[in-house]
């Protein structure tokens, strides 16, 4: 499907950039005139992925996070959040609801479950020692359809 708009930003893994990242995705998606619910869904999904990069990926080292956004002709929003942090040994296990490696920090193990519930598809690729990429797709309501 033809890409109608795209954007890429890189920012340091700092907690205050969680709100920056969700504002960015909201501003980018605004052009496609999404519903309030869709907007909240994608803000949450992006926030979860970015928070994971900060609290897990870059747990012991500093580094950058890249957020890539793409809008296609059929009103699909593609979101990619990538880090060059510690990576994940077992992605399948990490994606199980309630699984967390940081319970002492009051993490609930629900980040991936939120991303999965609030988008139409979620794919995670990771290599230990190299980093993690989370790719999500969200179909936005096409107001001119139907």
């Amino acid at each position: 499907m033809k890409t109608v708009n795209y954007m890429k930003i890189t920012f340091p893994a700092m907690a205050k950039n969680e709100s920056l990242a969700r504002s960015c995705v909201a501003a980018f998606a605004a052009g496609a005139d999404p519903t309030v619910e869709e907007l909240t869904d994608i803000r949450s999904a992006v926030c979860e992925a970015v928070t994971n990069a900060i609290v897990h990926g870059y747990r012991s080292v500093a580094g950058d996070i890249t957020l890539t956004l793409k809008m296609t002709e059929d009103n699909c929003l593609y979101i990619k959040v990538s880090d060059k942090g510690c990576g994940i040994e077992d992605v399948k296990k990490a994606m199980q609801p309630l699984y967390t490696t940081a319970p002492e920090e009051e993490r609930a193990g629900l980040g991936f479950a939120v991303m999965e519930a609030f988008t139409d598809s979620l794919r995670v690729t990771s290599r230990p020692g190299k980093g993690t990429a989370v790719i999500m797709k969200k179909k936005l309501t096409d107001k001119f359809e139907s």
């Binding site: 949450s44 009051e106 609930a108 980040g111």
Partner: peptide, 13 residues
């Protein structure tokens, strides 16, 4: 006005 899984951590904590 906005909440993610950190809110769940806050409640359970």
């Amino acid at each position: 006005s906005f909440m993610d899984s950190s809110g769940i951590g806050l409640i359970l904590g």
